[in-house]
Design a protein around this nucleic acid. Structure first.
Lengths: 119, 119
DNA sequence: TTCGATGTTCGTGAAACATCGAACAAGCTA
DNA sequence: TAGCTTGTTCGATGTTTCACGAACATCGAA
């Protein structure tokens, strides 16, 4: 994968509300969070969004830097997951409220997963 | 006051999650929401933030346009209030979660009210 | 070691945003 | 009517964000 030694993830008390809110104020990123909320870990390459690969990488970095997601590197590929427990600890109720509201208005529904056999 | 016929406030179902999240991803605006959450209506001129008057007006417009606050004009001055009930209806739990998190890390604590006898 | 796959980083632009001071409009008040 | 107060709007400026393609670094496989 990219030449990244090791992605830095903020600890729970390094997370800030402003960064979290900013990270969750983009439809693509909300879509990513919704997809990740519907299961555990997902392969990076499994994620589908209507943007270029580099742009998707950017969005995942914003989420990662805000502490919303965790990216794990295994061999040649990455796996992304939602930091549910950490978020609930730092910002109780926030994630659930955002997910509920997003479901209600289908925010970020252009984001999804590769269909089976798609790759 | 300014030459504004009548501020347009979005109805509950015109509010969008993305706009709300974006509005709440700025320290000054979070500070304003916190101040407004600690009471009912506040006079515009009573609000204190470390920015120019025009910038404060801008931030209040962002909050207004997102449906977070309501601005009422009475004679020569304006009164601002949080649209608590509408927010709870449209985004259940979101405001409380943001306020709780903001309290925890003192986001926007540079925003406040004029002290008594300050004007 | 050569190659292909996988994400990240870089370079670049376009758009959005935060900020300020100045100009302005509308309502009181003298 | 003239003047003051109160917010809004305008114009300018600098920063940040989003987006893309291209280049790159790393790992595993051929």
């Amino acid at each position: 994968m990219g030449y990244m030694k090791q992605a830095r993830h903020p600890s729970v008390d390094e997370m800030t509300l402003v960064a979290a809110m900013a990270a969750l104020s983009d439809p693509i990123r909300i879509g990513l969070v919704r997809v990740l909320s519907r299961g555990g870990e997902r392969g990076w390459g499994e994620l589908r969004a209507p943007v270029a690969k580099s742009t998707l990488s950017h969005h995942l970095k914003v989420l990662r830097d805000a502490g919303i997601t965790r990216t794990r590197q295994e061999g040649i590929r990455c796996y992304v997951e939602l930091r549910r427990a950490d978020l609930d600890l730092r910002f109780p109720g926030l994630l659930d409220a955002v997910l509920a509201a997003a479901d209600g208005e289908d925010v970020g529904d252009q984001v999804g997963l590769a269909r089976e056999g798609d790759r």
